[in-house]
């Protein structure tokens, strides 16, 4: 194993051991937060642990500073991924207020039923290097970018793009957002995605044209899912006629969308 992942370090080993230890004890779940920071002294670490525990919600927070990799690690016994992520928001505030944060942060959650493997732990640690400065990356057991199916998403609504970008990213897709039809087609041409999600009412080039052009392009395997406000009977029929794989009407259930994507891509 060690040979496959050259990035593996002492940090991975220690974390792997610690998390496994925690999961043996009374805890069924354990969250981990890692952040690249400047050096932090023991006193400050204690302070952080106390502040994160101020409501008594995180009884056994362990904070350690890893000299060799230059990162601080918070171990949160008993916390699920969601609450770890939430605690990470506070942790980030603390680190930022103390002017310590220099790189990105990453969070992960492990449970008794899904204990960490060394590989997973290594992926998690390498996530820290890959994440943008001051961004909180979530490790969810997703595959590395090269294996991930690529999805181009075209929608004029930036909020929706942002939301689905994160959601689908967590499901292990490599998402490329575009706000209009032309930009979308450009992405399709250059990245040859496995799937395209598009709105019908787009500036410049509408959804029908996008379906039509993709169906008639060399990249015929690319599936098109229409996600639109504008789904009256006529539109839906037209989409299927043109070769869309699926039509979903907004407001939509992201859960349903994720399930449908999964079916289409497997």
């Amino acid at each position: 194993m060690n040979t496959v992942y050259p990035a593996e370090s002492g940090l991975t080993q220690r974390l792997f051991a610690q998390v496994n230890d925690t999961l043996k004890a009374p805890w069924t779940e354990c969250g981990v937060i890692a952040a690249s920071t400047h050096g932090i002294n023991r006193h400050l670490l204690h302070n952080f642990a106390a502040r994160l525990n101020k409501d008594g919600e995180n009884p056994a927070v362990q904070v350690e500073y890893e000299e060799d990799t230059g990162c601080v690690v918070f171990l949160l016994p008993g916390q699920s991924l969601a609450s770890t992520h939430f605690t990470a928001l506070s942790a980030k505030n603390l680190l930022q207020d103390a002017d310590l944060l220099i790189g990105g942060m990453s969070v992960a959650g492990f449970s008794e039923s899904d204990p960490p493997t060394e590989k997973a732990m290594n992926d998690f640690v390498s996530f820290l290097d890959g994440s943008e400065p001051s961004e909180i990356a979530v490790y969810h057991g997703q595959p590395r970018a090269s294996e991930a199916p690529t999805v181009v998403m075209i929608d004029p609504n930036a909020d929706l793009l942002e939301f689905l970008n994160i959601r689908l990213g967590l499901q292990g897709y490599d998402v490329m957002p575009a706000q209009d039809g032309k930009e979308g087609l450009r992405l399709v041409a250059s990245f040859q995605p496995d799937l395209v999600i598009t709105e019908l009412a787009l500036p410049a080039l509408d959804g029908y044209q996008i379906i039509h052009r993709i169906r008639n392009s060399p990249n015929r395997d690319c599936q098109v899912v229409v996600l639109t406000d504008q789904a009256v009977e006529q539109d839906i029929c037209k989409c299927f006629e043109l070769g869309a794989a699926d039509v979903i009407k907004k407001p939509f259930s992201p859960k349903e969308l994720e399930a449908r994507l999964k079916r289409l891509l497997n």
């Binding site: 699920s80 991924l81 969601a82 609450s83 992520h85 939430f86 990470a88 928001l89 980030k92 961004e135 909180i136 979530v138 969810h140 942002e162 939301f163 994160i166 959601r167 967590l170 992201p254 859960k255």
Partner: peptide, 14 residues
């Protein structure tokens, strides 16, 4: 980051 937290955990049990 908070919105990222919301998007990531909207399907959670909590």
């Amino acid at each position: 980051d908070y919105f990222a937290y919301l998007s990531a955990n909207i399907d959670g049990a909590e």
